[in-house]
């Protein structure tokens, strides 16, 4: 088969992802999660005796729990293929990467399996978060 024919065949078989469609989908799914978060944090702030920042923290934790649970049940990847980035950017994505790397290596034992690989993917978030947090925390302390 010649190269040109091969390219033609590839174009016929491979369906290109609809980029604009994906961006619109992730806009609406991400927005929906922001909306749900607003409803939850408003509910907590009004009904329980917490400060505003605490109610945001509880909302953050609720999304972590939901992300972990969906990953455990095996639904996360199915919802992810529909919602795209709308599930990665909120804290559910953080929980998903942590839980999935813990679940994958569970069979290798507690120390060598879960213990050593739970931070395999989220380690970069924590590492760069803390390094940049120290630098910009210093700047913020000086400026504000």
């Amino acid at each position: 088969m010649k190269n040109e024919e091969y390219d033609k065949l590839i174009k016929e078989i491979v369906v290109e992802d609809n980029i604009v469609g994906n961006i619109i989908i992730s806009f609406f799914s991400g927005g929906l999660i922001g909306l749900i978060g607003e409803i939850i944090s408003n509910f907590i702030f009004k009904n329980f005796n917490t400060t505003l920042s605490d109610s945001y923290m509880i909302t953050f934790m609720i999304f972590i729990f939901i992300g972990s649970l969906l990953t455990g049940l095996g639904f996360f990847d199915k919802i992810l293929s529909v919602c795209k980035c709308g599930l990665i950017v909120p804290s559910t994505g953080f929980a998903n990467t942590m839980t999935s790397s813990a679940m994958d290596t569970r069979s290798e034992g507690f120390i060598k399996g879960i213990g050593s690989s739970i931070f395999k993917l989220t380690g970069s978030i924590i590492l760069y978060g803390i390094v940049f947090g120290i630098i910009f925390g210093f700047i913020r302390g000086m400026l504000l």
């Binding site: 945001y56 909302t59 804290s91 953080f94 978060g129 925390g137 302390g141």
Partner: peptide, 16 residues
């Protein structure tokens, strides 16, 4: 506060 960017914000506010 729902996106993961808030995580960086929490780290920086605590440090400052």
């Amino acid at each position: 506060t729902v996106p993961i960017t808030n995580f960086g914000h929490l780290l920086v506010t605590g440090a400052s």
